[in-house]
Amino acid sequence: MTGPILVTGAGGVGKTTVSAALGVAAAQAGYQTLVLTVDPAKRLATALGLDELHNTPTANKTLPTLWAAMLDSEASWDQIARSHAPPDAADRLVNSEFFHAITRHFPASQSYAAAEAMAQYLDERRWDVIIVDTPPASGGIEFFTAPTELTNLVGGRLFRWLTGGAIPGRRELFNVAARPALRIVDIALGSDLLERVGAFLFDLRTTYDGLRTRSQEIEKYFRKSTTIVVTTSDPAPVTEAARFFKELPQVARPPAAVVFNRTLPTAWEKAEIPANTTRPLARNLALWAREARRQETVRDEFAARYRTKIVSIGWQPTAPTDLESLAALIDETGLLTDLID
């Protein structure tokens, strides 16, 4: 295997469906394939063989080369604390309300947990193909920058903000009176919040060396990865897709392809309407033809601007939810061959 296949794009465009379709196609081609996903629709989860919440890889009953796992970022974080902090500090961390606040609310936190899980399965070398349905991000290439962001956060950025300079010793931090700014903050927040957060930050910092080493390993995998961007032809997801072309080359290879989901047939744009067509049906085609034309303009502009391979997936009323129709979704696009050969 060369590296992971990372499926990115804005929320609601069908990333999970495309990830699953690629997974099924690769598994059917005989590759041991693992799909890592975040929050699949129920019917899609069932198709993948994830009837219950599994955050360890599970083989599909009808297609045993297809494996899937759901990413549970909360559980991943406890594991991250345990593998990088000394046992006593790890115990305090996983029970700390501040730890849960950071892991839940730090923007790149879910991305980091997913990247860590990806690296763990790549380390195991049990699969030929690993496909990551990247978690919803606060935008752009967050999935790729999360390891560095988090390492910086843990490594002292919080401390430096707190004290305005070097990373302090335990005693200096709590000598609140010595720093007027901290004194004001202490008054504003009352009670002993400053002290509690300070103690937490010391525990958090014990994960720094481990996290830094791990982040470098994850970034090495990113550089070997193949990214595909999924979008629809709507303005917001297209803008999001464009960001990957601008930002990704800083940290990994540029996207290998962009998948336009929910595409309408271009043949509708100039279709002739037979004379015996009823008014509602003629009007209906006219509406969808306008939409097809709008979509084509968007795709053409994108292709001209970013000179990338464009793959179109047709609009289907219901998302496919069995293995055959998932594979059929990308069968004719040639996407799999592009990615794996």
Binding site: E97, F98, H100, A101, L158, W161, L162, L193, V197
Partner: peptide, 8 residues
Amino acid sequence: DALASAAP
């Protein structure tokens, strides 16, 4: 701000 990033 530093406190705020850790305190829920």
